[in-house]
Write a protein that binds this DNA or RNA. Structure first.
Lengths: 154, 154
DNA sequence: ATTGAAAACTCTTTACC
DNA sequence: GGTAAAGAGTTTTCAAT
């Protein structure tokens, strides 16, 4: 293989439109997509396949509303594992299903986890479970000035 | 209207299956989805429509690979606006297209932004742009032990 | 709330330019 | 990248439970 599967790929103006449209409405049909970008269906199909094959599009997914699912509390938790407890803490985070996302980052606070909770006591209970192995710093999300969006493309 | 549009909705075991399947593959057809959950196409269509109408499913979207798009650097930036600069800083964050997500949180560090950068100098340049109006604390993402996933449903 | 059947419609792919 | 056409598959409607 000359090129790695996830090589940086040139994304032209049409690909950019495809990504932008699918970012907003991932379930539209190929022909609808083709119509919007002004290409034929086969060409559109080709391009979409290439974007997926190149790994630019990693997945088609849904955005759910945590509140509608009974999670009124969203929190961001910085987690600093106690010395020697990094692995254990990472496993605890991975196994906590209310953690919907967690990044490993530079610095002593090795993890930044996004946590959904049914209530403040529920949140507290989860944080206490970590307390023996890590120091946590928690902030409650009050709003999202920037909702998940695409970066500049191309 | 008796119920608000985004009321908490009971999500039963079948809805859970629908959400789980679409979270992984949002573009499968209705009939494929119906087949996987063991319901007829019309019932599946009804349920899906209800999940969307109730706001449980907020959007169908794509997950892109930042690296494949030329963003090898992902950073999490905590932003503490200087006194009186909260509004200005929020606007700066919103207007910075490399910020792909930003939450407003409790505490002095009012914002937590997820930033994509083409290089370290590129990252630095963006942080400097904020330096007159805010104190920032930046961590580089080294990995994601928990990739975006659904919380427990039902 | 769910189903089966059928109609009507749409989509995707293939082949070729 | 486009066109055209075939074949495949899809979604909706409806009556019934």
């Amino acid at each position: 293989m000359t090129k790695p599967k996830h090589a940086v790929r040139a994304v032209d103006a049409i690909d950019t439109r495809i990504l932008t449209i699918l970012d907003a409405e991932a379930r539209i049909s190929l022909s609808e997509l083709a119509g919007r970008i002004g290409l034929s269906a086969p060409s559109t199909s080709d391009r979409l396949r290439r974007l997926v094959d190149a790994g630019v599009i990693h997945a088609f997914t849904i955005e759910i509303d945590p509140e509608a699912l009974g999670y009124p509390i969203r929190a961001l938790v910085r987690v600093r594992p106690l010395p020697g407890r990094l692995r254990i803490v990472q496993k605890m985070i991975e196994d906590l299903p209310y953690v919907v996302e967690c990044d490993k980052v530079t610095g002593d606070e090795a993890f930044l986890a996004r946590l959904y909770a049914r209530s403040i006591p529920h949140l507290d209970e989860m944080l206490e479970a970590l307390a023996d192995d890590a120091v946590t710093h928690t902030t409650i999300i009050k709003g999202s000035p920037v909702r998940r969006r695409l970066p500049p493309l191309g």
